[in-house]
């Protein structure tokens, strides 16, 4: 059974529609990339799945049960976390406080502690800088914190919106290798990126979204084919 199933999702803001029927599914432990040009609706798709933007039609199922129409705070509790675009860490709070916020949905103290230890193992910087104000971390460290903060909620599915935004290439490689580890631990991951190369090579399967629709599905093989990638990304004219 698919862990995340999106069917014919339509969404937008007010009278403006952004997504016109997007469908895909994600298997447990799988990684999915979503790429597309600016304004294609990638972020809206993430927000719609996480409950921040209301669906106009279609459905989202997590582990077989519907989550569409639920509030973001409830979606997290059901096992789906979104790392929003631009990281959105709380710069005025300490690193530890940011992580504590990630635990909001969890009741059990012991497993919470375990989750904290786990992400600190995965991202040592969070340990060494525990009492720093999060706003003082570097961009890459902030991204790690944002991912860790989502991870402590123990999500089955982790959505990441543009994790490479504003990061230096070496730092990006770092973040992606951490994501590999996270997937290996059993979390399914959806990554939205404008940089098609990066994700196509990384994810088991990559959707290209343009004008609010899925235009094509790529495999890591396609990443090598520059021309095909370009064409899929920008449309037939390119």
């Amino acid at each position: 059974m698919a862990i995340l199933e999106v069917k014919d999702l339509q969404a937008g803001y007010g009278k403006v529609d952004v997504l016109f029927g997007v469908s895909f599914s994600l298997e447990p432990g799988q990684s999915l990339g979503i790429v597309g040009p600016n304004g294609a609706g990638k972020s809206t798709l993430m927000k719609a799945i996480a409950g921040e933007v209301a669906l106009k039609s279609g459905s989202v199922h997590l582990q077989g049960s519907p989550i569409s129409g639920k509030k973001p705070e409830d979606v997290v509790r059901l096992g789906l976390s979104l790392v929003p675009e631009g990281r959105q860490i709380f710069g005025g709070l300490t690193v530890t406080e940011n992580l504590m916020l990630g635990l909001t949905g969890r009741r059990d103290k012991a497993s919470s502690k375990q989750a904290l230890d786990q992400v600190r193992g995965l991202f040592p910087v969070l340990n060494t800088h525990a009492e720093y104000q999060a706003g003082m971390l570097s961009g890459g460290q902030q991204q790690q914190l944002a991912i860790a903060r989502a991870l402590v909620a123990d999500p089955k599915v982790l959505l990441l919106d543009e994790p490479s935004l504003g990061l230096a290439p070496t730092v990006i490689m770092d973040v992606f290798s951490k994501l590999k580890e996270i997937i290996a631990l059993g979390t399914s991951v959806v990554i939205v990126e404008q940089r098609a190369h990066l994700v196509t090579a990384f994810a088991e399967k990559t959707l290209i979204i343009r004008a609010g629709k899925v235009q094509a599905t790529l495999t890591p093989e396609d990443a090598k084919d520059e021309v095909a990638l370009r064409r899929a990304y920008f449309g037939a004219g390119a």
Binding site: E52, P72, E73, Q88, L101, G105
Partner: peptide, 8 residues
């Protein structure tokens, strides 16, 4: 918004 994404 972000607080809600974290489950608040």
């Amino acid at each position: 918004k972000t607080a809600r994404l974290l489950g608040v």
